[in-house]
């Protein structure tokens, strides 16, 4: 565990907390993609199956359970809460799951370290996490008024990615056997997806304006 990884995890946790807070406090999920949230829930389920058979640290297990619980809590609010679900932009959130899930599953079946069920699911979760933000980015591009909490949520997620890359660079330099190329490539792609968003986020922040993405 290094400082970069800890910062990454904390930004990840913070992004989820901001989203949950937004939903609970404003009773609204406007601007949030349910597709992205459900994909994240699927990512966590596939990746954290190892909760049942491997133990790394109390910190790891605690965070895994927290991520699972919060992901399902967000999905539950957006799908079933009487008030919140009415604010969901159903017509705008049209990204098809199959376009993301199918290629990731295929890739995980072909490109993995070991052809076992848990290892393939773990690899699938890594690939899927890399692209799961796409429905959210598409939704934001369609939405005229992006509220600050939504913008901050995505920015925090981007910060989490950024710190994880620093963490990998650090581990690559300090650990003899750190050669996780599947994680590296997926992670870089995932972070690159945020680059465009961050450009406009910084632009609007500098101009002290509400975030608006160009069509």
């Amino acid at each position: 565990m290094n400082l970069f990884r800890l910062c990454g995890d904390m930004f990840h946790l913070l992004s989820i907390m901001v989203l949950l807070l937004k939903i609970r406090a404003t009773r609204s999920c406007r601007g949030i993609s349910l597709k992205t949230q459900e994909l994240y829930a699927l990512v966590f389920v596939c990746r954290y199956l190892d909760l049942f058979y491997s133990f790394i640290s109390v910190y790891n297990s605690f965070m895994k359970v927290t991520f699972l619980a919060t992901a399902f809590s967000i999905v539950r609010y957006m799908r079933y809460d009487k008030v919140v679900k009415q604010t969901y932009d159903r017509e705008q959130d049209t990204f098809r799951y199959v376009f993301l899930i199918a290629p990731c599953l295929l890739l995980a079946l072909v490109l993995n370290h070991r052809f076992t069920l848990t290892e393939v699911l773990w690899t699938f979760s890594i690939y899927l996490e890399a692209v799961a933000i796409l429905p959210q980015l598409v939704l934001m591009q369609r939405t005229q008024n992006i509220d600050n909490l939504t913008a901050n949520y995505v920015a925090l997620l981007g910060a989490y990615r950024g710190f994880y890359i620093l963490n990998w660079i650090y581990r690559f330099a300090t650990e003899r056997h750190y050669r996780q190329w599947i994680v590296w490539i997926s992670g870089v792609i995932q972070t690159a997806l945020y680059a465009d968003f961050f450009f406009y986020y910084a632009l609007c922040w500098k101009a002290n304006k509400r975030l608006q993405l160009p069509a």
Binding site: N60, M63, H113, W122
Partner: peptide, 10 residues
Amino acid sequence: AADGQAHDEL
């Protein structure tokens, strides 16, 4: 792990 594939991150 020796093969560097321990899933010790989140």
